[in-house]
């Protein structure tokens, strides 16, 4: 029984990791089409660096992910604090909207954003992409930070107020330092969500601001492209690094 279980887990993980393994192997494979192993090479990485439009798309994706993660974390932190501390008209509506954004399939959000930007007359490019990415990351950052806020001892906040701290001071000197670990993990989550997005990006960006998913999609639709393998291998390593960092953060949070 135990052996069977081991085989079961091995089978599932084999299925999950085989494509990634093949991808990384082919990034170093001399055979252009990955038909067989012809020997080790770095040539596809050079080809990738020389493919200017691919590199531009990669740069754009990283810029969007960094900006979206940062802003989604800031707005998410303010929203989490606001929803947690204040009772105001429309609070339930905001919570409901946040839930809807989180549950709605990407394709629905994608076309809803597209219709919004066209109606507002915002051209498709950097800004439309940034606003959409912040918005679909927000529910997740709010959730992560709210989780942390709920663990606080409310007496600390009362003590700060009794000692004469203003609302601004309470936010900046008490709440902000206490939620720092949650801010870091929510930034990492938003960064990953932004970098992983395919569907929303395909709708809300234009030819002036190409991003990775679109570029990769148009390159591989016709066949295998070895420089995409090289880039994909780097992306896998990047996500692996992010997982490790976020796990270390979690450990720190437990100790703190």
């Amino acid at each position: 029984m135990s052996m069977l279980r081991l085989f079961y887990f091995a089978g599932i993980f084999f299925y999950l990791y085989l494509p990634i393994g093949v991808l990384i192997a082919n990034a170093f494979n001399l055979n252009k089409y990955g038909l067989q192993w012809d020997g080790f090479t770095f040539k596809w990485f050079t080809a990738m660096l020389e493919n200017h439009s691919l590199m531009a798309a990669a740069r754009h994706s990283i810029v969007i992910a960094v900006c979206a993660a940062t802003l989604a974390t800031i707005i998410g932190a303010l929203a989490a604090v606001g929803l947690n501390r204040y009772r105001f008209f429309g609070r339930k509506v905001i919570q409901g909207t946040s839930m809807t954004l989180m549950m709605a399939p990407d394709i629905i959000l994608a076309i809803a954003f597209l219709v919004l930007f066209i109606s507002l007359g915002i051209g498709l490019g950097f800004w439309s992409l940034l606003f959409s990415h912040i918005t679909f990351c927000l529910p997740f950052t709010i959730m992560t930070i709210t989780g942390r806020l709920q663990d606080f001892d409310p007496n600390i906040l009362d003590a700060a107020r009794d000692l004469g701290a203003s609302e601004k001071n309470i936010l900046a000197r008490v709440i902000l330092p206490m939620m720092r670990p949650a801010l870091i993990s929510s930034w990492l989550l938003a960064f990953t969500l932004s970098l992983d997005d395919v569907i929303i990006s395909s709708f809300v960006t234009g030819p002036s601001y190409d991003v990775l998913p679109l570029k990769i999609f148009s390159m591989v639709k016709v066949g295998v492209k070895p420089e995409v393998n090289a880039l994909a291998a780097l992306l896998v390593l990047l996500s692996l690094a992010l997982v490790i960092v976020s796990q270390l953060m979690l450990k720190e949070k437990k100790i703190a």
Partner: peptide, 24 residues
């Protein structure tokens, strides 16, 4: 550990993973 192993592929761009599936 098992859950992290499950999540690592999930953190990689899904288009890239779909493309990888084609090679398999």
């Amino acid at each position: 550990s098992v859950l992290i192993l499950l999540m690592i592929p999930f953190w990689t761009n899904s288009l890239v993973r779909t493309y990888a599936m084609r090679m398999v």
